[in-house]
Structures are given as C-alpha cells and as structure tokens.
Amino acid sequence: MPGRVRENGPMTTSQHPGPADDLPIRDGMIRLGQALKLANLAEDGAQARALVEDGQVRVNGEVETRRGRQLHPGDVVAAGGAAVRITAAD
C-alpha cells in the first residue's frame, strides 16, 4: 500500500489479511500463544514463539512481541496472511 510504512520497511500483502474468521473462547481471555495454536496460525508453541519474537504477529493492527499478551473478545490477531477475531463462545 503506497504511503504506509512500518518500522521494518514497507507493509506487504501478507500483513494485510482478508476478513477475520471467528475464534470462540470459553473464558473471558486467552493468551496470544494459545490463540495462535488454537487458530492453526502456528503448529505448536515453538512456532508461535518464533512468529511473535520475529515480529510476524499483529494484534488489532499493531505488531505484538509478547506471547503472553491477554486477548479478549473483539481482538483481531493476524499472522501469515490469515486473521482471527476473538469471540465469546455461546
């Protein structure tokens, strides 16, 4: 996208995922690392950690480097060209 720049250079298409799928959670919050695994954005905890540490994960459009960040319904997590919206389970 012309004119938009992030800290590590121009934004790429993979950083602008399409519509977010819903990721329902039972409790009022979930940790980022857990959400990445539950949403299949990471295969396991090691991959989730690597994605976060490498700055490849965005929460609500901002790069997030804390794997333990608490996510709540309404938060949107994006990684690898895909995105999920945290929702409350019915």
Rank of each mutant, 00 (worst) to 15 (best):
V52D: 05
R58E: 02
D54M: 11
G81L: 02
R26E: 12
H16W: 02
R66Q: 13
A83Y: 06
H16V: 10
R58Q: 09
G74Y: 02
S14E: 08
Q70G: 06
P10H: 03
A39D: 11
D27H: 12
E64K: 00
Q56I: 01
L38I: 09
P24V: 01
K37M: 15
E7G: 05
L36W: 03
D22W: 00
P19W: 00
A20C: 06
R6Q: 09
H72D: 07
L23K: 14
D44P: 07
D27L: 10
V84T: 12
L36H: 09
G3Q: 11
A78D: 03
Q34W: 01
L32R: 13
E64T: 06
I86L: 15
P19N: 08
I86E: 06
L32F: 05
V63M: 10
D21S: 15
V77D: 05
E7Q: 12
D21M: 08
G61W: 00
R4P: 00
K37N: 13
T12E: 11
N40D: 14
A46V: 11
R85L: 07
M29A: 14
P17Y: 00
I86F: 06
E7C: 03
N8E: 08
H72C: 11
M11W: 01
L32Y: 05
G61P: 02
A20I: 05
A50Y: 04
D75A: 06
N40W: 01
A88N: 09
D90E: 09
V84L: 07
I25N: 15
L51K: 13
R67H: 07
R4I: 03
P10E: 04
V63G: 05
R67E: 10
R49H: 13
D27K: 15
D90S: 12
P19R: 14
H16R: 13
A83V: 06
P2M: 04
G9R: 00
G81W: 01
A39Q: 14
E64W: 00
R6D: 05
L32T: 08
I25T: 14
A82T: 12
G3V: 05
D90A: 10
I30V: 15
D54N: 15
V77L: 04
D22R: 08
R26M: 09
N40C: 11
A48M: 08
A89N: 14
I25P: 15
A89L: 10
D21T: 12
E62R: 02
R67M: 09
Q15C: 06
G9Q: 08
A46D: 15
G68Y: 01
G9L: 04
D90L: 04
N40P: 10
D54K: 15
G28T: 13
V84E: 06
Q15T: 08
D54I: 02
T87C: 12
M11H: 04
R6A: 07
L41M: 10
A88K: 15
R49M: 13
K37G: 10
P10A: 07
D22K: 08
D75G: 09
V52L: 06
G28S: 12
V5H: 04
G45N: 03
L36P: 14
E43I: 05
V59D: 09
Q70P: 01
V52R: 02
T87A: 13
V63P: 06
